[in-house]
Amino acid sequence: MPSTPVIELCEVSRRYDAAAEGPPALCDASLTVHRGEAVAILGPSGSGKSTLLNLIAGLDRPDTGTVTVDGVRVDRLGEAASARYRRAKIGMIFQFFNLLDDLTVADNVALPAQLAGMYRATAHRRAAELLETLGIDRHARAYPGRLSGGERQRVAVARALINRPPLLLADEPTGALDSASGQDVRGLLSELHADGQTVVLVTHDLALARTCATRTIEVVDGRIAADGINVPAEAVR
């Protein structure tokens, strides 16, 4: 396993309502993810898995503990610095795609690169390359509303990869898809990991975890309850 850590969480806790009884959303979580790993975070609704993902993404701050991603102390960043961090370090894939319906597919993919300061023509060349690689270049001039769910998620993946992030985060990436499209996205994420992309995904989709992840983390009541290496499917046949 590669030795370079991309994610280091140390005793991280987050409580959204200081007056509330019961466990915090996340409690004393420590986690290291190495470059090239694909990690699936599993757990019931309300277990803290999305909180964990949001802390890694810099969308939330811990009450205690430290969050370091690719050498950046994320827990210390202000709002503007957090936005720059996400553009430079993080690619994000969401359950409901979060594409802009009034922009073409190509414009959706190129937008994060332009926001990061890339010239428009350069951003669109990079977008065209990604769309071709992901097999959806024929839809470059279409609008997202005319695409299937699986195609829209491929556009979202291309957008997430446009700035060549060291870390790809996916929040229920197959949750809004039918079974065929879900299988398509599972295959795509597996290919990205095989090419060396570090991936952390939150999912209820056990097939996604088994197919795409080399490691599974279970979160229960805000605590990391289990952390284990996945056995490849072909090894148990």
Score class of each variant (00 low, 15 high):
141 R>E: 15
93 I>A: 00
121 A>E: 13
84 R>V: 04
91 G>E: 00
129 E>N: 11
125 R>M: 13
111 L>A: 07
130 L>Q: 01
125 R>C: 10
142 A>W: 07
129 E>W: 05
86 R>C: 08
87 R>Q: 12
119 Y>G: 13
108 N>T: 00
110 A>G: 05
83 A>Q: 09
108 N>P: 00
95 Q>V: 01
100 L>Q: 12
119 Y>N: 13
133 T>P: 08
129 E>H: 13
131 L>E: 04
111 L>F: 12
110 A>L: 02
103 L>N: 02
134 L>W: 10
140 A>E: 07
139 H>S: 10
99 L>C: 04
131 L>V: 06
100 L>V: 15
102 D>S: 15
124 H>R: 14
93 I>N: 00
106 A>H: 07
133 T>W: 13
137 D>N: 09
107 D>S: 12
90 I>C: 10
88 A>L: 09
121 A>Q: 09
136 I>L: 10
113 A>I: 12
99 L>A: 02
87 R>H: 11
105 V>Q: 01
141 R>T: 15
119 Y>H: 11
117 G>V: 02
139 H>L: 11
83 A>S: 15
131 L>S: 03
130 L>V: 11
139 H>W: 11
146 R>G: 07
96 F>A: 11
84 R>T: 05
104 T>Y: 15
129 E>G: 12
84 R>W: 08
113 A>N: 03
118 M>G: 05
97 F>I: 00
103 L>M: 13
119 Y>F: 09
103 L>W: 10
96 F>N: 09
90 I>H: 04
132 E>M: 07
138 R>V: 12
108 N>A: 02
121 A>W: 06
110 A>T: 00
95 Q>N: 00
123 A>E: 02
115 L>S: 05
130 L>R: 12
112 P>T: 03
107 D>C: 09
101 D>N: 15
89 K>D: 04
136 I>V: 15
83 A>I: 04
96 F>L: 07
105 V>R: 00
123 A>D: 02
114 Q>P: 08
141 R>H: 14
114 Q>K: 13
118 M>F: 04
122 T>C: 07
133 T>G: 08
131 L>P: 01
118 M>Q: 15
88 A>Q: 14
100 L>I: 15
116 A>G: 06
111 L>H: 05
130 L>Y: 05
120 R>I: 01
88 A>H: 12
115 L>I: 07
104 T>F: 14
93 I>H: 02
132 E>L: 08
128 A>P: 01
137 D>R: 05
144 P>M: 05
141 R>L: 14
98 N>C: 10
91 G>Y: 01
134 L>I: 14
112 P>I: 01
121 A>V: 10
138 R>I: 10
139 H>T: 07
88 A>I: 03
140 A>T: 12
102 D>W: 13
114 Q>G: 07
123 A>S: 13
102 D>R: 07
124 H>K: 14
128 A>G: 11
124 H>G: 12
98 N>P: 06
